[in-house]
Amino acid sequence: MGKLTLYGIDGSPPVRSVILTMRALGLDFEYKVVNLLTGEHLQPEFLKLNPLHTVPVLDDDGFILCDSHAINSYLVSKFSRDDSLYPRDLQKRALVDQRLFYESGTVAPAGVAITHQVFWQNNPEIPKAKIDNLAEVYKNLNLFLKSSDFLAGDNLTIVDFHVLAVLSGMVHFLEIESSKYLRLAGWMQRMKRLPYYEEANGARLAQIIQLIQSKDFKIV
C-alpha cells in the first residue's frame, strides 16, 4: 500500500467523515492540517492539489482526490476487506447513494446555513426558520431509521459517518430530543459507541464546541 495523506481541518464535518472511514478501515495515514482561518487553503501549493480550495483532499501515493463522498467510496472500494461500508450489491448501494445525496443536498446545507452565519459572518442571531429547517432534517433522518439501526439498512455504511460528522456539531444548536426523534437519538448513541468515535470525531469537536459557546447565539 502506498502512502496516504489527508489534508483537512478538524472543524470540517466532511474531513471528520473521512477520518471516521479511515479509522473504520484501519488505515494508516498522515494528517496535514490546512488552516482555513488563516487562508492556507488559498496558498499556491494547496491550489495545485485542489483548485477549488476545499478540504478534505486525499493524496494516495500521488493520486489526488477531493470531496469527502468521493474519497470515502474510493477508500472502501480500494481498501476494505468486505463491502459492508459501501456495498457492491446494486440495490444496497443505491440506497446508500440516495442517503448520501440527501446528506450532501439537505443535511449539510442545513448545517452550513447556521454555521456560516455564526462563524464567518459573526452574526449570533439565528433565524428560527433555519432551526426549523434543521428540525425537519432530524425528522427525516428519524424516518430513515424507522426499520433499521443505521441510515441505509442494518449495517454501518459511509453515510452514517457523513451524517454523524454534521449532526455531532449541530446538536449544540438544536438538541436531538428522544421524545421527538427516538430512533435518531438511539442511532447517535450507537455511533458514539464505535471504538474509534472519540479519536476520529468526538475529540476533534472540542474546538468547534468552544467556538459555538463563545458566540452566545440566540434564535430570533
Results as ranks from 00 to 15, higher is better:
residue 102 Y to D: 12
residue 23 R to N: 14
residue 30 E to V: 11
residue 210 Q to P: 02
residue 62 G to E: 07
residue 155 N to V: 06
residue 21 T to Q: 07
residue 181 Y to H: 12
residue 122 N to S: 10
residue 93 R to S: 07
residue 30 E to A: 12
residue 39 G to V: 02
residue 29 F to A: 05
residue 170 M to S: 07
residue 138 Y to D: 07
residue 63 F to C: 09
residue 95 L to E: 14
residue 114 I to H: 00
residue 21 T to N: 08
residue 171 V to T: 05
residue 212 I to V: 04
residue 174 L to C: 07
residue 80 S to F: 11
residue 36 L to S: 01
residue 212 I to K: 00
residue 132 D to M: 01
residue 207 Q to F: 08
residue 46 F to S: 00
residue 105 G to R: 02
residue 26 G to M: 02
residue 4 L to M: 06
residue 188 M to P: 04
residue 164 L to G: 08
residue 179 S to A: 13
residue 181 Y to L: 02
residue 75 L to E: 11
residue 204 R to K: 15
residue 174 L to F: 04
residue 85 L to V: 07
residue 40 E to T: 01
residue 91 Q to R: 12
residue 203 A to K: 11
residue 193 R to M: 15
residue 115 T to Y: 03
residue 39 G to F: 03
residue 98 Q to Y: 10
residue 204 R to Y: 10
residue 159 V to T: 14
residue 68 S to Y: 06
residue 204 R to A: 15
residue 17 S to E: 00
residue 171 V to S: 06
residue 106 T to C: 11
residue 60 D to V: 08
residue 204 R to G: 11
residue 38 T to Y: 02
residue 41 H to Q: 09
residue 79 F to A: 07
residue 206 A to F: 08
residue 126 I to S: 04
residue 205 L to V: 05
residue 22 M to A: 09
residue 155 N to W: 11
residue 112 V to D: 11
residue 190 R to K: 11
residue 40 E to M: 08
residue 71 I to K: 08
residue 60 D to W: 12
residue 41 H to T: 01
residue 124 P to Q: 05
residue 202 G to E: 06
residue 17 S to T: 02
residue 12 S to N: 01
residue 118 V to P: 00
residue 127 P to S: 04
residue 209 I to W: 01
residue 38 T to R: 13
residue 20 L to I: 03
residue 120 W to S: 15
residue 136 E to G: 11
residue 14 P to M: 02
residue 93 R to C: 08
residue 56 P to V: 00
residue 32 K to C: 04
residue 170 M to A: 09
residue 94 A to P: 09
residue 131 I to C: 06
residue 112 V to L: 12
residue 146 K to N: 14
residue 73 S to K: 15
residue 176 I to D: 03
residue 105 G to F: 01
residue 180 K to T: 09
residue 195 P to D: 00
residue 15 V to E: 10
residue 112 V to S: 14
residue 145 L to R: 06
residue 124 P to M: 04
residue 125 E to R: 15
residue 24 A to G: 07
residue 72 N to K: 06
residue 216 D to G: 15
residue 177 E to D: 14
residue 69 H to V: 14
residue 193 R to H: 13
residue 143 L to A: 13
residue 136 E to M: 06
residue 59 D to Y: 08
residue 110 A to C: 08
residue 64 I to C: 10
residue 33 V to H: 04
residue 91 Q to W: 11
residue 138 Y to N: 04
residue 66 C to K: 10
residue 15 V to M: 12
residue 188 M to W: 02
residue 121 Q to N: 12
residue 26 G to I: 00
residue 18 V to M: 06
residue 176 I to C: 09
residue 75 L to C: 05
residue 136 E to Y: 06
residue 32 K to P: 04
residue 63 F to E: 02
residue 170 M to P: 08
residue 9 I to R: 07
residue 218 K to R: 13
residue 197 Y to D: 05
residue 4 L to R: 01
residue 199 E to S: 11
residue 61 D to H: 10
residue 87 P to E: 05
residue 120 W to I: 09
residue 1 M to P: 07
residue 66 C to A: 14
residue 155 N to Q: 15
residue 158 I to P: 13
residue 62 G to Q: 05
residue 178 S to L: 03
residue 218 K to P: 08
residue 143 L to M: 13
residue 200 A to Y: 04
residue 46 F to R: 00
residue 180 K to D: 15
residue 119 F to E: 00
residue 181 Y to W: 13
residue 122 N to L: 13
residue 161 F to S: 10
residue 106 T to W: 00
residue 174 L to I: 03
residue 137 V to R: 10
residue 95 L to H: 11
residue 191 M to D: 05
residue 14 P to H: 03
residue 73 S to H: 12
residue 176 I to S: 03
